[in-house]
Amino acid sequence: MSDIPAAILRAFELLFTGDADLWRIVWVSLKTTIAGLVLATPPAVLLGYVIAMYRFRGRRIAIWLAQAALSLPTVLIGLLLYLLLSRHGPLGGLHWLFAQPGIVLGQFVVALPVLLAFTLAAVQGLDERYAETAIALGASPIQVMVRVLHEARFGVMAAVLSGFGRVISEVGCALMVGGNIEGQTRTITTAIALETSKGEFAQGIALGIVLVALALLMNGALMLLQGDAHTVRERA
């Protein structure tokens, strides 16, 4: 256990000397996470809005599936995608297994239910007079959606942030689909999981610090954006 202080020192050394391997891992993680989020956000927000606002056949089933998908282990999603993307799977021709597009697809699937469920909750929690007022003033369905999503913007931002948090911190899917190939598909979480199991603590600790810093940064940005939001008491 005496090598733990040494590992922590070494971790800071890696962080501040610009260790190429370390930052390549961070970059792969950020790139795939952001790509997955950018792809997942429009359909998830649209679906969340539609489910919140409109009555249609299968609405309750859609809510049920989205909620259930929230508690699905990502390693299971990884297994599913592995089967789809493997050489003899239906999507094998894409050659996305053990490559970054595969990870992005995984991040997309992991992020989708989080974004959808949070958007759904944000829109459902919004005062219905917003939509009614827009309708009464002559807004088209698209204009009503723009208006309502604008009023629910902090909820939608929270949805995207939660999606970011879930995607960047998930390890199961990235490991199954990506395969932790150095310089290619090694992400922060897969590196921590596998390097630590090899007894290499320093890189794991350094990557952990990067993850914590990212979490603080993202949530700090959200708080700044919400700067003009009121407390419950002020709104009343």
Binding site: D127, R129, Y130, T133, L137, Q143
Partner: peptide, 22 residues
């Protein structure tokens, strides 16, 4: 017009102009 009207979180002027803008 609602009993307790709700205003959009824009400006007062943008609220009043909303129906014309849409």
């Amino acid at each position: 017009v609602h009993q307790h009207p709700i205003l959009f979180s824009t400006s007062v002027a943008d609220n009043i102009g909303y129906g014309l803008v849409v």
